[in-house]
Write a protein that binds this DNA or RNA. Structure first.
Lengths: 211, 211
DNA sequence: TCCAAGTGGATGAATTTCCTCCGGTTAGTA
DNA sequence: TACTAACCGGAGGAAATTCATCCACTTGGA
């Protein structure tokens, strides 16, 4: 196993991965590494010492993210009364934490080398298994439509979590959870479902009634 | 009015705006202008002659886009039997053409100056009016949930149209329409609704069963 | 036919991003 | 408490990207 890090070094490493996860998710995989370092509250030097190149950082983020999602999925599956509840819980928590799967599952731009790195492959496979279980289970119970698959869930999560630039902060913050509920329920009127927040009007989006 | 352009020049101008609209939508407002020119099949020089700076191009795209959406909305509203049908038609056509509103309606990064340019303000106001009409109408008929507003529609459209990098082409192409239908219907099983394409599995997303 | 209008892309400037290097700091052990 | 191996931060030059001009050549249309 790799040498054990000094306490502060480990802390910084974790902060870096966390910062990278957020920034990668929000702004894409090619945010300047300087920004990642800054957001983590460490110097650029520190980042480069820990992760020799961008690819290494991406891989670390991927593994970390898949791990978190797997944990969430496991928790929900074992705690929830049924697969659908687990699926919904999984999505809610992932969205709340702003964790998209896509990056971690297929890590688009990840050079083939890293893409297939065994550690990542294994972790990914495990997550996919859990996703499939939730989807299949919910479909078996007849509550999840059968024309969607686990891949749809992955894409959905990524779409929801991705930041839309230019929105007023209040709106931007609410969007992911808001739209998750919308996708779950659909736009059509349906008894018993109501969004937590009120309607967003276009005028409010523009933010200038009469400036 | 501004001087009339020579035929070929006008054609190039249109191509530029079209290329910019697509690229802005897919990759954000700060794609390199070189790429816009290339995609439009013209030289960079041509772009710069027609649009002195990025802001001018953005404004042109915004006006053009709002115009197109307005036209679609008008068509659907007058042709459709009711507001809900019009709204759905509007969304379907906009998604099909990959036209997001957000950019054009609130043009996030647009410097205040241009953001408030009268031509754009007026066009935007008109579009917002139409959106509100569709939303309010559909709600009055009881078919659209009342906890969403025209702003939600704008955000939705932008989310759907935005490209998710790294997806297999086939999936990427299908995503916008696929998810529009999902949002309209919801993930829950519902009689009589079926997606045009089959489920997308996570494995298929990753693209490597056993490579 | 003729030329004002238009074209493209080579090119240097400006900006952004990368990533090394090293003087100073600190965790952790004895 | 003292010592040192490990770690830190960020200045700054190299490299890459993007901007935006300029001009020799082409073309639409009167």
């Amino acid at each position: 196993m790799t040498k054990r890090l000094r306490a502060d070094a480990q802390r910084n490493r974790d902060d870096l991965v966390a910062a990278a996860r957020t920034l990668f998710g929000e702004r894409g995989i090619d945010v300047p590494l300087d920004e990642v370092a800054h957001r983590a509250g460490v110097g650029i030097g520190t980042l480069y010492r820990r992760f020799p190149d961008r690819e290494a950082l991406i891989e670390a983020v991927a593994i970390d993210t898949v791990g978190r999602l797997t944990e969430i999925a496991e928790t929900e599956l074992s705690a929830g009364p049924d697969a659908w509840t687990a699926l919904v819980g999984f999505l809610r928590r992932a969205v709340e934490l702003r964790i998209g799967v896509l990056l971690s599952v297929l890590t688009p731009q990840l050079p083939q080398a890293a893409h297939g790195r065994p550690a990542l492959r294994a972790a990914r496979q495990e997550l996919i298994g859990l996703l499939d279980r939730m989807v299949a289970g919910a479909q078996a119970h007849g509550v999840l439509r059968t024309d969607v698959g686990s891949g749809d869930i992955a894409v959905l999560l990524s779409m929801l979590v991705r930041e839309l630039p230019g929105l007023p902060d209040a709106v931007a913050d609410a969007v992911p959870v808001r739209f998750l509920e919308l996708v779950l329920d659909g736009l059509r009127t349906r008894p018993g479902s109501a969004l937590a927040s009120g309607p967003v009007t276009a005028a409010e989006l523009v933010g200038d009634g009469e400036p």
